[in-house]
Design a binder for these strands. Structure first.
Length: 200
DNA sequence: GCTGGGATCGCCT
DNA sequence: GGCGATCCCAGCG
């Protein structure tokens, strides 16, 4: 089942956790790729680390739009990251997708990633964008459309396992204070490298 | 196995 | 003009 618009109306931290175990799908011209979401981070409107903290600008405008759309931006001049927009229109909040477990189209992912080994295909926000073939021009598209969408956790019964959510501080943040807004599936080998555990 | 540095550019001040 | 929600590789131990 494709997650419907209503699903994205949960509060941002709850949604960040709810997205764990669901499946990001990109239907691209070269083929379909699917990855299980195993790591997320929440960015709230009152957080200095968020792009939307100061005010609405050209770059962050998608974050202020309706929930359930994709916010894609360039980081460090060379990598892109994908976010799921959350919150009401006019409120700039989002969930960053930080890591995927490759499920379908692994060969295509490897091709796009320059034949990197399986565990490093999608274990980082920039890596998964490259592996999934997500492009900057897709910024703002709806996640309830045909091209890029998220499937519920029970969409693949054979992979629908019970898991524990680990909560930690976020990665790479240089503004504001460290907040426990990073979530990942315990013991999943596809989570991005650094682990600074604060609770589970 | 870990650390540090370099690549590279659009956006905001 | 400065910098960032990153990634990769070289160098060292």
């Amino acid at each position: 089942m494709i997650l419907p618009k209503d699903f994205y109306l949960q509060d941002t931290c709850t949604l960040a956790k709810s997205l764990l175990g669901t499946y990001l799908v990109h239907q691209s011209p070269e083929g379909r790729t699917v990855g299980k979401i195993v790591e997320t981070e929440a960015y709230l409107s009152d957080d200095p680390a968020s792009h939307a903290y100061q005010r609405q600008t050209q770059r962050n405008s998608v974050m202020f739009g309706p929930a359930g759309h994709a916010y894609i931006y360039l980081i460090y001049g060379m990598h892109y990251c994908v976010n799921v927009v959350t919150g009401l229109v006019g409120v700039g909040e989002a969930v960053l997708i930080r890591a995927l477990e490759p499920m379908e189209g692994v060969d295509l992912m490897q091709l796009r990633r320059g034949q990197k080994p399986g565990k490093t295909l999608c274990n980082g926000p920039g890596k998964l964008v490259q592996a999934m073939g997500i492009k900057a021009g897709m910024n703002g598209i709806s996640l309830t459309g045909e091209q890029l969408y998220i499937l519920s956790a029970d969409s693949f019964p054979e992979h629908n396992e019970v898991f524990t959510i680990v909560t930690t501080t976020r990665i790479g943040i240089t503004k504001g204070t460290e907040l426990p807004y990073r979530y990942y599936i315990a013991n999943n080998p596809y989570v991005s490298f650094k682990v600074r555990k604060v609770s589970s």
